[in-house]
Design a binder for these strands. Structure first.
Length: 473
DNA sequence: GCCGGAAACC
DNA sequence: GGTTTCCGGC
């Protein structure tokens, strides 16, 4: 019998239990989310774990932004093995796979720190979106660890996202740039954000990657390295982010893209892609966030929002078409954060807090061995159907309970959250989940230049973009 | 623990 | 292509 344990292709609906604010857009977990692969990629999986509170004890953001620590290597390996239906997976193998990313510069090792790796967001972007003129982007010039860049003045997910003026359409699991769904323009099948789940939730320096950031969580005026922000003169204020100490850049650097904001808040060109109604900040009811659906057919609200920061916009896309799919575009996430979210970790039906007989991964692990306990953190992974390779691994079953549920005791509102990473530069801890409170109930409307107004013709916007690009360059 | 080559696998 | 598996070396 074929292994369909984790079936990346059959991920169940987004777990409703997951909390909004930390979920990657569901599209990020779809098969097509991993360019070049029909299965979830390891780095994607890692991000997946990183954004789940249940796994804080296993893997968590720590240290520098983008940096994470595998607290429980064996457990992570086990989980990965579950996901990939590789019961014999172990940390050694997993780490080998991680090393594979070194060359791709998606990841790199934090020297001197055991089990510590670091995502190289910008490189990931480059790898997956070569069409983007990253090389000329002040953002990347400043941030890139691999190009000699010393610091990352604005290595914010917002900044990264700002490079992608088009949002993926999570509603159907297809993005605006989804391959095959959009007329392949010059970059028709490349310009997608599905490779950057972290853009929406990756928040290094925090035990939990703040995602679904509300409106621009930055104190205006933000001092962009290149000082070019033609679109949003302080439209998105950090003031909307109660958890961010004024003037603090560090947190903001990691506040991933505000998935809860809507395209209507996007400076460009997303907002302009929205119909007037939605572009105007139409709200989606809480029902839309119950996370009960995985954005299969419509209804799945986008949780990815571009930061109101298109300053480094270097995108040359012109085929803004595919408007049809825009029906699935993000909607204003004005509803309270707690209204649920649709986490893309599809198959993971984590019963946060509902698990019984929890046993820490460390306690029950012992490496990925055939006699694994039958319990699993991933209810999704029913390995009973694993291929012959695992047929003798009946112990490798899952779904019994959420042994990690005990980790879910982390209180989302920061009352009981896990400790923040020991980051000296980190401003006074606001909460284990900085973004939890960053999502304003009513996001301020973006200040869009007339030229970027929704009524603006596409070609005009494109022209505008081109012009801006030239200016930028 | 970490690294990277090599080969196999899917 | 993206691992998985194995392995020798540091």
């Amino acid at each position: 019998m074929d292994c369909n344990c984790v079936s990346d292709l059959l991920l169940p609906p987004v777990p409703a239990l997951w909390t909004p604010g930390f979920a990657f857009p569901d599209w990020a977990y779809k098969p097509e989310s991993s360019p070049g692969s029909r299965q979830i990629q390891l780095w994607h999986f890692i991000l997946e774990l990183l954004q789940k509170e249940e796994y804080q004890g296993v893997i968590a953001w720590q240290g520098d932004y983008g940096e994470f620590v595998i607290k429980d290597p064996d457990e992570v390996a086990r989980l990965w093995g579950l996901r990939k239906c590789k019961p014999h997976m172990n940390y050694d193998k997993l780490s080998r796979a991680l090393r594979y990313y070194y060359n791709k510069r998606i990841l790199h090792k934090t020297k001197g720190k055991r089990f510590t790796y670091k995502f190289n967001f910008s490189k990931v972007v480059l790898v997956n979106y070569p069409i983007l003129d990253m090389a000329n982007s002040p953002f990347f010039l400043a941030q890139n660890h691999f190009n000699g860049g010393a610091t990352a003045p604005d290595c914010t997910p917002e900044a990264i996202q700002s490079l992608f003026p088009r949002l993926p359409d999570s509603g159907r699991g297809t993005s605006l740039f989804d391959r095959g769904t959009t007329a392949p323009g010059p970059e028709g099948d490349k310009l997608r954000l599905d490779a950057f789940p972290f853009l929406s939730s990756g928040a290094p320096c925090y035990s939990k990657p703040p995602s679904l950031l509300g409106p621009y969580p930055r104190n205006p005026p933000f001092d962009y390295p290149w000082g070019f922000n033609p679109y949003l003169p302080g439209a998105f204020s950090l003031n909307n982010c109660p958890k961010l100490p004024p003037g603090s850049l560090y947190p903001s650097q990691f506040y991933p893209s505000p998935l809860q904001s809507s395209l209507s808040q996007l400076p460009h060109p997303f907002s302009s892609l929205l119909p007037p109604a939605e572009a105007g900040g139409g709200e989606r009811g809480a029902a839309g966030q119950t996370g009960g659906t995985n954005g299969t057919a419509g209804g799945q609200p986008l949780r990815l929002t571009l930061p109101p920061y298109p300053g480094s916009l270097s995108i040359v896309r012109t085929d803004i078409g595919n408007g049809a799919s825009l029906g699935e575009r993000e909607r204003v996430e004005a509803s309270p954060p707690a209204t649920g979210l649709s986490l893309g970790l599809g198959a993971v039906g984590l019963g946060a807090g509902t698990g019984t007989g929890q046993q820490s991964p460390t306690e029950r692990r012992g490496g990925v061995k055939p006699d694994l306990d039958s319990d699993s953190d991933l209810e999704i992974t029913d390995l009973s159907d694993c291929s012959s390779e695992n047929e003798n691994e009946h112990e490798f079953s899952v779904g019994k309970e959420s042994s990690l549920a005990n980790r879910s005791q982390i209180v989302l509102d920061g009352k009981k959250g896990s400790a923040l990473p020991p980051i000296s530069s980190l401003p006074p801890p606001v909460s284990p989940h900085p973004l939890k409170s960053l999502i304003p109930v009513s996001p301020p409307p973006p200040s869009l230049p007339p030229s970027l107004s929704p009524s603006m013709a596409l070609h005009d916007r494109h022209r505008e973009t081109e012009t801006l690009k030239m200016i930028h360059s």
